[in-house]
C-alpha cells in the first residue's frame, strides 16, 4: 500500500497554511494530542498520524528490518511530508518522536521550519559521565513487563470499555489507542526507543528547536534536557511546571502556551529565507 494517509492513519484538520505535524511517543497514538492539537487549528494545517503498529496504522506495513533503528521511523515522517506535500513544517514530537524528528530533519533539513521536542532524550541508558536515567537491565525489565501485559491487554481492556456505554466515543477512542497496538511491534519499538543512542547526531542539527523539559520526568530527567540544551544548535530550552512525562495530557494549557509563544517568535525564518 503506497497511500501514506491510510498507512499512517493520517488525520488532517486546521485552517492555516503552514503544516504542523504532531508525532506521538512510545505506548500511545495520535489521541495523545487531543488536548493540544486543536489549539493550533486556527493558524496551522494540523497533521496527526500513528506510527506503524500503533492506533489505526496499517500493521501489515511493519518491517522488522526497516524499524530496527529510529531512522526507519524518521523515513516515515519524511514519507508523510512528501506524500501530503508538506513544506516548511513545524514538527512536534513527544518522547522518542522528538528524536525521530531530529533524525528526519538531518535527512531533509529544508523540509522543516522548527522542531518542538516534548520530553526528549537522545539516550536513555546511563553512559558515565552521561546520565540517561536507566540501565540496560531496566529496559529488559520493561520489555518483560510489556510481554506479560500485552498477552491479555486487548482482552482485559475490552470488557471495561463495554462498561462505559454512556461514553461510546471515548470507548472507541481507547480501543483505537491501546487495543490496536500490536504486541510484537510495540516490543520492538520499545527496544529501539530505549536502547538507541543518538547523542552524536545532535551537533549536526540545523533546524531551530524548542526543548520542553518537564518537572520530575521519570523518563527524561532534568540532566538529559540540560544535556540537549547544551549540545543542540539553535535550540531554546523551556522548563515546564508540568510534572511527569506527558505534559500534553496532564498540563495541556501550559504546554500549548509555551509552544505558541515559541512559534510566535517565528523561529526558523532565517533558515528558510
Amino acid at each position: 500500500m503506497n497511500d501514506a494517509r491510510a498507512r499512517f492513519n493520517v488525520t488532517e484538520t486546521g485552517r492555516g497554511q503552514r503544516p504542523m505535524v504532531f508525532a506521538h511517543g512510545f505506548g500511545c497514538d495520535q489521541t495523545m494530542w487531543r488536548e493540544v492539537a486543536p489549539a493550533f487549528e486556527a493558524d496551522y494545517r494540523v497533521v496527526l498520524f500513528d506510527f506503524i503498529g500503533a492506533g489505526g496504522s496499517d500493521t501489515s506495513a511493519y518491517d522488522p528490518e526497516r524499524y530496527a533503528s529510529l531512522s526507519g521511523y524518521a523515513d516515515d515522517v519524511l514519507a508523510i511530508c512528501r506524500e501530503l506535500g508538506l513544506e516548511d513544517v513545524v514538527f512536534v514530537g513527544h518522547s522518542v518522536s522528538a528524536m525521530i524528528g531530529i533524525l528526519a530533519s538531518l535527512r531533509d533539513p529544508g523540509r522543516f521550519r522548527s522542531l518542538v521536542l516534548v520530553g526528549p532524550s537522545p539516550c536513555y541508558i546511563n553512559d558515565p559521565p552521561y546520565v540517561g536515567g536507566f540501565e540496560r537491565e531496566d529496559i529488559e525489565g520493561l520489555l518483560a513487563m510489556m510481554e506479560k501485559n500485552y498477552g491479555g491487554w486487548a482482552q482485559a481492556m475490552a470488557p471495561v470499555i463495554m462498561k462505559n456505554p454512556d461514553r461510546p466515543a471515548l470507548a472507541a477512542e481507547l480501543e483505537e489507542l491501546f487495543c490496536a497496538t500490536d504486541r510484537d511491534i510495540a516490543r520492538d519499538f520499545a527496544a529501539v526507543t530505549f536502547l538507541s543512542d543518538n547523542r552524536d547526531d545532535l551537533g549536526e542539527v540545523e533546524v531551530p528547536s524548542l526543548i520542553l523539559q518537564c518537572t520530575d520526568d521519570a523518563i527524561a530527567p532534568d540532566a538529559v534536557g540540560e544535556y540537549l540544551r547544551d549540545r543542540l544548535p539553535h535550540s531554546t530550552f523551556r522548563k515546564l511546571r508540568a510534572n511527569g512525562h506527558c505534559p500534553h495530557l496532564s498540563h495541556p494549557t501550559e504546554t500549548t502556551e509555551v509552544i505558541r509563544d515559541y512559534l510566535a517568535a517565528d523561529p526558523g525564518a532565517p533558515w528558510t529565507a
Partner: peptide, 16 residues
Amino acid sequence: GARIYYQTHVFPLLRL
C-alpha cells in the same frame, strides 16, 4: 522498567 511502563501506558490511560 515499571516507571517507563507507568508513564507510557498506565498514566495516559488514567488520564484518558
